[in-house]
């Protein structure tokens, strides 16, 4: 048992949640793209995580975009990494065995340029018993083909979901883009395609200009905007989506503190992911879990469902 799980037991608080049939010891997970087992694990015990949501993996290696890929903005940041990853084979060989030593669930984020590429990556990892769920990234703003193109069109979103569902032996969660007028439309399309859960939000499209260099700060010009500045947008979208679909929602977007996590749970999320906060504080995800626990103790919530039911929004 981890340090914080021990503490929760002492407090008589049950932090566990269910996410599409997958039991998580607690609702605090990482967010894809901001977690890497060996690197993040230098700063905290990975077994504290509800789930380790790993970085987007594609069927073949991707080199990502040119640098600069990172820009800081007011209360947030932009990235245009472009899903650089060593491919499903290397993920299976290097990342999974390492990660599986820890007592946490593994959710593997899948990237692709086409339906066939998403399916191919899923096929390559389908028989890995370590993986509890696939998260399909149809919302990356940093790739030219695929990515967000699937996440902003309900017809495409439903099609990619149903094709992946046909072959996946594990629950499938669709990661949604906030770069749409009505996110519930895409969430409903994913549900109609057979999604077991949805996760949101991915980054918002943004831009930064370097006044000294007189050019766009990012080599790709635009990038994905994340961090505390986007939290109200994310929270609103999680709340809307949780009401629009009957499948569970993994909520994320600018969560920096335990009370932020509580807000997302109150808005209808079944669990939450911590992304950009891990850049401001490498052990943020564990701190947030600890703060959520203290918040629950102070407010007399014995379980996550008690917390959720205490709110009338």
């Amino acid at each position: 048992m981890t340090q914080l799980d021990q503490k929760a037991a002492e407090y008589g608080i049950d932090l566990s949640v269910d996410l599409a049939g997958v039991r998580l010891t607690n609702p605090v997970c990482t967010a894809s793209g901001t977690f890497s087992a060996r690197e993040s694990g230098q700063f905290y015990d990975i077994s504290e995580l509800g789930a380790a949501v790993t970085k987007g993996v594609s069927a073949v290696p991707w080199t990502g975009n040119d640098t600069p890929r990172i820009a800081e903005t007011y209360g947030g940041m932009l990235n245009s990494v472009g899903l650089q990853n060593p491919g499903a084979e290397a993920y299976r060989r290097d990342e999974l065995p390492y990660l599986s030593q820890f007592d946490t669930k593994i959710i593997t984020n899948i990237a692709g340029h086409s339906i066939e590429e998403y399916c191919e990556a899923v096929r390559m990892l389908n028989d890995c018993p370590e993986i509890s769920m696939f998260e399909i990234n149809i919302s990356c703003p940093n790739v030219s083909e695929g990515g967000m193109a699937f996440g902003t069109d309900p017809v495409m979103a439903e099609r990619v979901t149903s094709e992946v569902k046909k072959i996946s032996s594990k629950p499938v969660m669709i990661k949604l883009s906030p770069n749409v007028t009505d996110i519930t439309e895409i969430a409903r399309a994913a549900e109609a395609g057979g999604a077991d859960a949805v996760s949101l939000i991915n980054t918002l499209m943004g831009m930064h200009i370097d006044l000294k260099k007189r050019r766009a700060t990012l080599a790709r010009k635009t990038g994905g905007f994340s961090g505390p500045a986007i939290r109200p947008v994310a929270l609103r979208m999680v709340w809307e989506t949780a009401q629009a679909v009957s499948i569970p929602v993994l909520g994320m977007g600018g969560i920096c503190r335990g009370t932020d996590a509580a807000e997302f749970l109150a808005a209808g999320a079944s669990a939450v992911s911590v992304g950009t906060a891990a850049l401001s504080d490498p052990a943020a995800v564990v701190r947030i879990k600890s703060e959520l626990l203290e918040y629950m103790k102070e407010n007399g919530f014995a379980s996550i469902s008690e917390l959720k039911h205490a709110f009338h929004i």
Binding site: G33, T34, F35, S36, R38, E39, S40, Q42, F43, K55, G64, T67, P68, R69, I70, A71, M77, N79, V81, Q84, A278, L279, P282
Partner: peptide, 16 residues
């Protein structure tokens, strides 16, 4: 030197 995100290898922001 490169513009970094996390600075510890998780985000893959700084590459060469």
């Amino acid at each position: 030197e490169e513009r970094m995100g996390c600075g510890y290898g998780a985000c893959v922001g700084c590459v060469c």
